[in-house]
């Protein structure tokens, strides 16, 4: 047939000369979006699940408190005592008045420790908190 003849005559080739450029662009995208984990989490925890969750819009404002299965508390890279929390959080709030404290607490924790932490946050005047949870399906 007419069409087939024409098709058979020329060999179509995908131009590959710009392939490295494309790949580099993708590479740059991933390099820019990658946030290498800043914190070395030393406690073991499993987050609880919830349905009505929201994203924290501004990640720069967030500061984390981890509470592990064994009840140890970690802020930034250190395991801290409960009573040090006031000073630490107060300093954080001075640096950043709109700080959001993300509480990453193990699901099997008791409320006692949560209440203790919250009381200290209130004393440090860091009032915006976020209970970190996973999406429940």
């Amino acid at each position: 047939m007419k069409f087939q003849k024409k098709f058979g005559q020329m060999k179509p080739r995908v131009p590959t000369s710009s392939l490295p450029d494309i790949i580099f662009m993708m590479l740059l995208f991933f390099m820019v979006t990658t946030t290498i984990k800043v914190f070395d989490v030393k406690v073991r925890y499993i987050l609880p699940e919830a349905k009505a969750i929201e994203k924290i819009e501004n990640k720069r404002l967030v500061s984390y408190i981890w509470v592990g299965r064994d009840g140890r508390i970690q802020v930034d890279d250190n395991i801290v005592q409960l009573d040090d929390l006031i000073d630490i959080m107060y300093r954080k709030r001075q640096e950043n008045p709109n700080v959001i404290v993300s509480l990453r607490i193990d699901r099997d924790s008791k409320m006692g420790i949560v209440i203790d932490i919250q009381q200290r946050l209130r004393k440090a005047d860091a009032l915006r908190i976020n209970y970190s949870t996973l999406q429940k399906l």
Partner: peptide, 15 residues
């Protein structure tokens, strides 16, 4: 890359 989005339940503590 981990698209580690922070999700959770937001709350404001009383002063």
């Amino acid at each position: 890359t981990t698209f580690d989005v922070d999700t959770g339940i937001g709350l404001v503590l009383p002063p």
